[in-house]
Design a protein around this nucleic acid. Structure first.
Lengths: 292, 292
DNA sequence: GATCTGTCTATTGTAGATAAAAAGACAAAA
DNA sequence: TTTTGTCTTTTTATCTACAATAGACAGATC
């Protein structure tokens, strides 16, 4: 096959979820906007809905005939893009499995294991190389540099520089900047999770990313914002992998975030710096502890 | 063709240059080491030398029969790798030619213009995207963000953070660290060029990169060192493109470098910071002046 | 015994082909 | 004015094939 129609399948599934809530479907261009796909794909989705007798579709009149059932959805394995599949598969190998620094990475072998062509693997490796975990020997293999202690220290060093600078910018944002509103919402979610920490502590990972990304974005610097991708991906997989004491760690981080948020809202540069440093220090320690 | 044999051609040319100096050729593995290629390529080179009656080759006995002539070399257009060709071609378009921010980039069109396959262009764009000048819309085109004033300001902001930190680390390097020796050599070249500035001012660009990379490397942080790639490529093409007052600008920068080097050698953190800031400030101004 | 050479295999770099998706044109309908 | 039906055209994502290059191993040579 030349191209998987995962865009279609994924958008179709999301459309069914929408349909479960509202009974009327908007116009084609509007639906395209909502699902983030082109009209061509929207029409393919509508056609399939009609075939499955989920809707009746006559020009502008789109009526939902019945609630979508689980069997109407495409299985979730079929909806992730190849890039996502490769990323997950690769990260599992290098973070969880015994992947020694210095190990050679073979494009063909990797492609075979994942079950794709070499081109996709190759493009993934090129994109991934900016994270500093692998390196290319031209005309030859890739070398795994590994998720080592050095890597973590170098990563956090830059992170700290960038986040301190971004936080300092944050307090200078004008009163009516949307970031303040978002910060309020994030704070509320923090309190909700903390109130029910035993059952909701797993939600921290996602919230953590949302909060720090907000801070980084206030730098208005594409290099700083882009760098956050590296932190996000490392912490994302790291949370999945290292679950020891997750509840305690997350509770502590939530408290630190609240102090940090309060400092931001006080708009006192000194307090912000202090709270930011404290949190970053413990984040670094957590990361380091998980490395042998 | 499936793969260009530029590695062979380039290594062949370099081998001829070597042969012009020494009359005896080392063993195959040694030659491979010297030229940075595998034995397979070395043997291909030797075979061609034999065919051209440049050497006689019988197992270990390799005798140079005659001096290589200009016509023996491959023309230089054939020795640059596809990636280099694409890079030059692309940079010319976006830095020199009328490339408006927001413009769409078309892989197929670009490939046709450069005369390569789409795969190589695509891989180039992926690699290049980390420089923040272009951005991908998934399932759709690339967008040129352009070499704008904002870009230059964001780039220099990060550069200044990184270089100040690296310079501070530099003064803490142990006395016997090879960087001190390299710094001495770089200083000497500065003085040589300054003494003959009218005819040698063009050599500044390369020296500039060598000096700043040395400083950045003392950070021992892969993210800081990798970031220098962005600065290097931008300044590299920028020097080629904007030649107004090149002599004066370079002379001034050389003087600033000398002050900066003296500060580093003094190992006085305060002086280093001052000299570094002064130079980075004028580098930033130079870059900004060239943007409309 | 160490290094070098002849030979062979494995892997990468690149081109070219093909299906999915986007993009869009334009007239007719709402 | 916006939406739809019906197209056609472009463009991307991905696969496959093949030459260049790297690398391995056994036997030859010093």
């Amino acid at each position: 096959m030349a191209k998987q129609n995962t865009v279609f399948k994924d958008a179709f599934n999301r459309c069914l979820t929408q349909m479960a809530e509202t009974s009327a479907l908007p116009s084609e261009p509007e639906l395209g906007q909502l699902l983030g796909v082109s009209r061509t794909t929207v029409r393919a989705i509508l056609t399939r809905c009609e075939d499955l007798k989920l809707i009746s579709w006559d020009k502008r009149r789109k009526t939902v005939l019945r609630r979508p059932e689980p069997s109407d959805y495409f299985p979730s394995e079929e909806t992730s893009s190849l890039a996502e599949i490769i990323e997950r598969s690769f990260m599992r190998r290098i973070l969880a499995g015994g992947a020694e620094p210095g190990m050679q990475i073979n494009e063909l072998e990797l492609a075979r294991e994942i079950g794709t062509g070499t081109t996709s693997v190759r493009e993934f490796l090129i994109r991934f190389s900016r994270f500093g975990l692998i390196e290319k020997r031209p005309n030859s293999h890739w070398v795994l540099k590994g998720f080592t202690r050095d890597f973590a220290l170098e990563l956090t060093e830059v992170r700290e520089m960038f986040e301190l600078r971004s936080a300092a910018r944050f307090v200078a944002l004008p009163e009516d900047h949307p970031a303040w509103e978002e910060l309020k919402k994030i704070e509320a979610v923090h309190r909700e999770i903390l109130a029910d920490i035993d059952s909701r502590y797993k939600e921290f990972s996602e919230l953590d990313e949302r909060f720090h990304l907000l801070v980084h974005k206030s730098s208005s610097n594409r290099f700083i914002v882009d760098f956050y991708d590296i932190i996000a991906i490392i912490f994302h997989y790291h949370y999945q992998w290292n679950k020891a004491n997750a509840r305690e760690r997350n509770a502590r981080a939530l408290e630190e975030h609240l102090a940090y948020i309060a400092a931001l809202r006080s708009r006192e540069p000194k307090q912000v710096e202090q709270a930011c440093r404290r949190h970053l220090k413990s984040a670094r320690e957590t990361l380091l502890q998980s490395i042998p």
